[in-house]
Amino acid sequence: MRTSPGWMKVGVGRVAALGLLGALLLPLVGLALAISPAELWAGVQDARFGPALLLSLRTSLLSLGVVVAGGLPLAWWLARSRSRIARLVEVLVDLPLVLPPAVVGVGLLMAYGRRGLLGGVLESVGVSLPFTSAAVVVAQVVVAAPFFVQAAATAFRSVREEQLLVAQTLGASRAEAIWRVAVPAALPGLVAGASLAWARALGEFGATLIFAGSLPGITQTMPIAIYAALERDVSLAVTFALALAAIATVILLALRLGPGRGVGAGLRRGRR
Rank of each mutant, 00 (worst) to 15 (best):
R2G: 09
S4D: 12
P5H: 09
P5R: 14
W7M: 14
W7E: 13
M8H: 10
V10Q: 06
V10E: 11
R14T: 13
A16D: 06
A16H: 04
A23Q: 09
A23P: 06
L24T: 10
L25G: 10
L25S: 09
A32M: 15
L33I: 06
A34F: 04
A38S: 14
L40F: 13
W41H: 11
F49L: 15
G50M: 15
P51H: 05
L55W: 06
R58V: 12
L61Y: 07
L62Q: 13
L64A: 01
V67T: 05
A69S: 12
W76S: 07
W77E: 07
S81N: 10
I85S: 15
A86L: 10
V89I: 15
L92W: 13
V93G: 08
L97I: 14
G107M: 05
G107L: 03
M110L: 15
G120C: 10
E123L: 14
E123T: 08
S124V: 05
P130T: 04
T132P: 02
S133D: 10
A134K: 05
A135Y: 01
V138F: 00
V141I: 15
A144R: 00
A144E: 04
A144V: 07
A145C: 09
A145W: 03
V149T: 02
Q150N: 13
A151C: 10
A153Y: 00
T154P: 04
F156I: 11
E161A: 12
L164G: 02
V166E: 06
L170K: 10
L170T: 08
L170D: 08
L170E: 11
L170V: 07
G171Q: 06
S173C: 07
A177M: 04
A182I: 03
A185E: 08
L187C: 03
L187H: 01
V191Q: 00
L196W: 00
A197S: 12
A201R: 00
E204L: 01
A207G: 14
I210G: 00
F211M: 08
G213M: 05
S214I: 08
P216T: 07
G217Y: 06
G217W: 07
M222Q: 02
I224W: 05
I224F: 11
A228S: 13
A229D: 02
L230E: 12
L230H: 03
L230K: 08
R232L: 15
S235L: 04
A237G: 09
A237F: 02
V238F: 04
I247D: 00
I247R: 01
T249A: 12
I251W: 00
L255F: 03
R261T: 07
V263D: 00
G264N: 06
R268D: 09
R268K: 11
